[in-house]
Write a protein that binds this DNA or RNA. Structure first.
Lengths: 249, 249
DNA sequence: AAATCACAAAGTGAGTACACTTTAGAAGGT
DNA sequence: ACCTTCTAAAGTGTACTCACTTTGTGATTT
């Protein structure tokens, strides 16, 4: 933490504007959003170690702002599930447990499954085609893409699929969920035997959607997403290793 | 708003403690939690009208605190989906639209369905029995209970059922969802033709759970929860009427 | 020597201050 | 009469301040 100084989020913020012919420093006005994004990114990557106490003044100085926006951001992140607050003690980073990993994936599977069923009855052929196109475009750089890019493409495919449900609440919930899962999804993708596995399953899901096969597709989605408890344990273990040792294995 | 003064949340807060043989005023220390709860309750009941601008100073004075804890609470409530924030303008209360009602119910159905499936394989017979007992105890005061009590019992049954999944993330997500749905659920329950309908469906769900009939029970849960678009529209309309006219119809 | 108490340092929690933004209303021009 | 512009009031956003809580360290007592 202290050895890994965070980037100053304040870059280029002290915008200058003219008022009454004189230039003045303008306040940030949206510090909270930037601070929120910065801290969230840290939390997503577990650059706060699991359960770690978060020091407000330290964080504030590192981000170049006062404690006020930091606290505001932490309050938001609390409801996002990234930090927990204990009265008179402060904020603590989220934990990392195999159960949490498994539970998050199960919840994600539940939402995406339901979204798929809704998509089958609500998405137009054109919309489906657009989603497929976006996916194939991404997946065309299959061989060359780095793992990070693959992960991005995978997540945006699933998000796009969910958007076809026309259910804003599901999309919203899934977004929050994905940000909490992202760290694990990367690890999971990287440790996959062959990348093509995932691609083939996506193809099958697309096919079911085209045929409006709600039941069949729902089963595919569920299976595609859900992690076994053993697998969740493995992912969690790899995650911990990465956090504490920085290893890729 | 201004005509409906909110209850002072600060009751009995200025606790007195002795330090060095002298009594002193002790700070609130957890104002945020109380303010958060107070504002949330207001938001749940739509005592902020849909889309209404929320005045921080007004709210703060009504709650007997400064703007600081109010803003903290609003930041949390933003991620809870109760308020939205626009930079340099402030916070606005959530909207009320038929689509939102429908979407929320669909999401809830998705989560409870998945939780039921998991419960079928994870809940012990004893746990199931405990849940059933709690439900029957509640439902025994079927005839006499007010609508409010019925709504509480209904919600706690569904929560208890979901807890059998042993999936903390689902439970957590459902809690947030239920608080956002509560206003509509009350309306929905009150406008139900006969209360016994709901009871019978609960019985059927319990029966499926006892038989570990995941597929059958899942279908029952989905059907029990999901609102048709038409029904959602009706509930939303009734909701608006209640908010703006205070009518029960 | 171990446990308890006292004290000091660090950190959180809420209130306050002030600068900036927005908005509404009045004055002036077209 | 309508639109524009200026101005003042209201309200938001952030920094700052200070009181209280927690925690760790050292001294005192048993």
């Amino acid at each position: 933490m202290t050895t890994n100084p965070r980037n100053d989020v304040n870059n280029g913020v002290k915008v200058q504007t003219r008022a009454k012919e004189r230039e003045r420093i303008v306040r940030a006005a949206d510090s909270v959003d930037r601070v929120y994004a910065a801290i969230k990114e840290f939390a997503i990557d577990y650059r706060f170690r699991p359960g770690e106490k978060i020091n407000e003044v330290e964080l504030a100085t590192e981000l170049g702002v006062s404690r006020t926006p930091v606290r505001a951001a932490l309050n938001r992140l609390q409801r996002d599930g990234f930090v927990a607050s204990v009265p008179n003690k402060g904020f603590y980073a989220r934990e990392l447990t195999p159960e949490a990993v498994r539970d998050l994936y199960e919840l994600r599977a539940a939402i995406e499954r339901a979204a798929f069923v809704l998509a089958c009855e609500r998405a137009t052929d054109t919309e489906i085609q657009a989603t497929v196109d976006a996916w194939t475009k991404h997946s065309s750089l299959k061989g060359e893409g780095s793992w990070a890019k693959v992960a991005v493409a995978d997540e945006s495919f699933h998000m796009a699929l969910t958007q076809l449900s026309k259910n804003a609440q599901m999309v919203n919930a899934l977004e929050g969920l994905c940000s909490r899962i992202r760290f694990f999804r990367r690890i999971d993708l990287e440790s996959m035997p062959r990348r093509s596995h995932s691609y083939q399953e996506h193809e099958a899901i697309i096919d079911a959607l085209r045929r409006r096969d709600a039941a069949g597709g729902a089963a595919l989605v569920e299976k595609h997403i859900t992690l076994s408890s053993a697998h969740a344990m493995e992912v969690a273990a790899r995650g911990l290793a990465r956090i504490f040792f920085g290893t890729t294995a």
